[in-house]
Each structure stands twice: as C-alpha cells, then as structure tokens.
C-alpha cells in the first residue's frame, strides 16, 4: 500500500517524541549552561604546567629541557631557558623556564607534549570555556597563566595524578636510597633525605 512506509516512519518519530518525556535514552540533550554533563575523566583540552606546593614560581616542575618545544607538532610552544638555576621542589638546583609561552590559537590539544615530558611537568587541562575578545594577546598564554597546582591536576584527572605522584615519590625514594647507600657527602645528602618528606607532603 502506498504510504505505508511513511506512516510507519511517522510512528517511529512519534515513539521517539513521546518517549523523550519518559526515557533518558530518548532525551539526550541537556540545557547546557545551566545543566552540565559530568566531565569525562580522560578529557583533554590545552596543556598546563604543574607546580608543587603553594608558590607557582617556586614549585614549578618544568626544568626548561625544551623537549616539548621540539616535539610539538604545530610548534606552538616557546621556551627560553633561564641563565641561573634555582632549587626545585626537592631542593636540587635546576634550570627553569624564563619564558614559557603557549599560543593556544595554534595548539591542537594533541597531548604529545605531555607524552614526551620526562618530568611530568606539563599535563592536559579540561577547561573549554576560554573565549576571549583579545584574539592575539588573550590567546598567547605565558607561564603564569599556564601554571596550575598539583591539587588542580588531582581534581581533574584523579587516577592519572595519583599514578604520577606515586611514580615521582618512588623515583625520589630510589634516589634517596642510592644516596644513603653510597654514603654520600653531606652536601648531596641534605636535599635527597628531605625528598621523601616533600613527596609525602604532596600526596
């Protein structure tokens, strides 16, 4: 019968329309700005620099090794290495980035900087509401804008952050054990023995 297919199709549409009042599976939209879906834990959107402790300059994990700058596919990272060294979270003197800029208008959130970073210093954020009126300055983020605390990292990616902290603590423990075993001179021993304490403090 001509028209049977159309009627069956309309029945399907009606089923979906009325079903949307009763079944969550048929009503998939949410009223976005007021109502939000839970953030998926693995989500990623633009990198940030992790710092330990309270002070972003003091606790910054980045040691300006510039690996991410070289590996970044669209080359959106600019790093200038510092001339001097300053102590990192464990007290060991390290270089630090004098300039660390990410042009987020170029960044494509591919996560390769995170994968290649040997110091777990750069991680992916989840913030996506980043509109700005200033398309040049507002999208070129300096190191202060990029710095976010380890607590923030724990908040957005709890599982991953716990694994990273455990790995870092284990590494420091190993270094400390090595220093103790070698019966190192006091100059070296001082920062290494303080390391496990710092690691516990963060976790």
């Amino acid at each position: 019968m001509l028209g049977k297919g159309i009627v069956l199709g309309l029945a399907e549409t009606a089923r979906n329309f009325f079903g949307s009042f009763f079944y969550r599976a048929r009503l998939t939209t949410v009223q976005f700005p007021e109502e939000r879906l839970p953030q998926i834990e693995a989500a990623r959107n633009f990198p940030f620099l992790v710092f330990d402790g309270a002070d972003w300059q003091q606790g910054m994990r980045c040691v300006a090794c510039q690996i991410c700058e070289k590996e970044c596919p669209p080359k959106c990272i600019l790093i200038e290495k510092s001339k001097d060294k300053k102590p990192d979270a464990t007290g060991k003197p390290q270089f630090y980035p004098a300039v660390f800029n990410i042009d987020v208008s170029v960044c494509m959130s591919c996560q390769i900087c995170v994968e290649v970073c040997p110091f777990d210093a750069i991680k992916m954020d989840v913030d996506f509401e980043l509109s700005t009126y200033d398309r040049f300055g507002g999208l070129l983020w300096d190191k202060q804008r990029l710095s976010k605390s380890n607590e923030h990292y724990h908040q957005i990616h709890p599982t991953e952050a716990a694994a990273v902290d455990a790995a870092l603590a284990a590494e420091r423990e190993k270094l400390a054990a090595k220093a103790r075993a070698a019966n190192a001179p006091p100059a070296n021993a001082a920062p290494s023995t303080s390391a496990p304490a710092t690691a516990e403090g963060q976790a």
């Binding site: 001509l2 049977k4 297919g5 159309i6 199709g9 029945a11 399907e12 549409t13 089923r15 979906n16």
Partner: peptide, 14 residues
C-alpha cells in the same frame, strides 16, 4: 531496526 523502519520503506526515499 528503528532507523530502518523510519527510512527504508519510506516511499519518498525510495
């Protein structure tokens, strides 16, 4: 199945 019922038999689509 639903999609096919909605579309495949539809005379206009055919």
């Amino acid at each position: 199945d639903e999609y096919e019922q909605l579309l495949t038999g539809n005379e206009i689509l055919v």
